[in-house]
Amino acid sequence: MLANKVGKQLRHPTYSLTGWLVSKFFKWHNQILEENAVKLCNIQPNDTVLELGHGPGFGLQAAAQLLTAPEGKLLGVDYSQYMHEMASQRMKEQISRGKAVLYCSDLVAMPIEENTVDKVFHCNCYYFWPDLKAGARAIHRVMKPGGNMVTTLRLDSVIKAAKLKVLTGDKWRPDVYMEALQSAGFTDVRMENKREKLTTLQAIFATAVK
């Protein structure tokens, strides 16, 4: 029961003690993943960049610093109202200047036009999506031809979560997600091991082909 409760809060944090604790977990566990995903995206100053499942907004902050050209724009999607409001507060300056737009939305229903996004990144979240193939198609839909997507995770932690039944089924497996990306129209789908200080993490890369 506890594993199920924790899994639900990781998937969809709410205004609760457990949700608050999850937000602290994101800062401790996800910040290094967020920063590396941003770095590996190779963001250019005039890109349109989208973060999926942005949580409290640490990755958004890191990406915003790189979008220095007037055309540069940052988009964020998270279907937790709690995380949406937390990130909106963190990014209020960029939002007020029209530099960033955040949506409280399901991934598949995100209100972003087709072929408009240069770079997409997300961290530690694909295994919470109800349907990996539908999620991959939704990402592919909004990306420009040749656009790059990066997701980061700590596979050792994910495996532990699966053993504890915090994650169920086989969606946590990177190969299952990579197969979904390929079926949606991505190419050059691969996973690489990365090292950041004392932390080993994994990065999945994919390029949108249209």
Rank of each mutant, 00 (worst) to 15 (best):
C104Q: 13
M143G: 01
V150N: 04
A87R: 01
T116P: 01
S105R: 10
L132S: 05
R190E: 08
L107A: 11
N193W: 11
A161G: 10
T151A: 12
R154L: 08
F121T: 03
E114K: 11
Y177P: 02
Y177M: 09
G185T: 05
L164V: 06
L102E: 00
Y82Q: 13
Y127K: 04
G135H: 12
W129H: 04
G59A: 11
V166S: 01
C123S: 15
N193V: 08
V101Y: 11
W129F: 15
Q94M: 14
G147L: 01
A136R: 09
V77N: 06
L153E: 08
W129C: 02
N115E: 11
V166C: 03
A63R: 03
A134D: 04
R173V: 13
Q182L: 15
C123G: 14
E114I: 02
T152D: 06
E114A: 12
Q61M: 12
F128R: 06
V108E: 07
Q65P: 02
D131T: 07
N148T: 15
G135W: 10
V120N: 11
A62Q: 01
H140L: 10
I112N: 10
G147P: 00
T116F: 02
E179N: 13
N148G: 11
E85Y: 12
D188M: 14
K160R: 10
T116N: 04
E179M: 09
L167Q: 06
P111M: 07
L60R: 05
H84A: 05
V108F: 06
N115L: 05
Q61K: 14
I159R: 09
A134Y: 01
R154H: 09
E113V: 14
M191F: 01
K99V: 05
A136I: 09
L132N: 03
L102C: 00
Y103V: 13
N124P: 04
Q89P: 04
T151R: 07
K160Q: 02
S183E: 15
G169N: 10
S96N: 10
A69N: 08
A134H: 00
T151N: 12
V120S: 09
P70Q: 11
V150T: 02
Q94K: 15
T151H: 08
K144G: 08
M149H: 08
T187K: 13
K160N: 03
A136M: 10
E179T: 13
P130T: 02
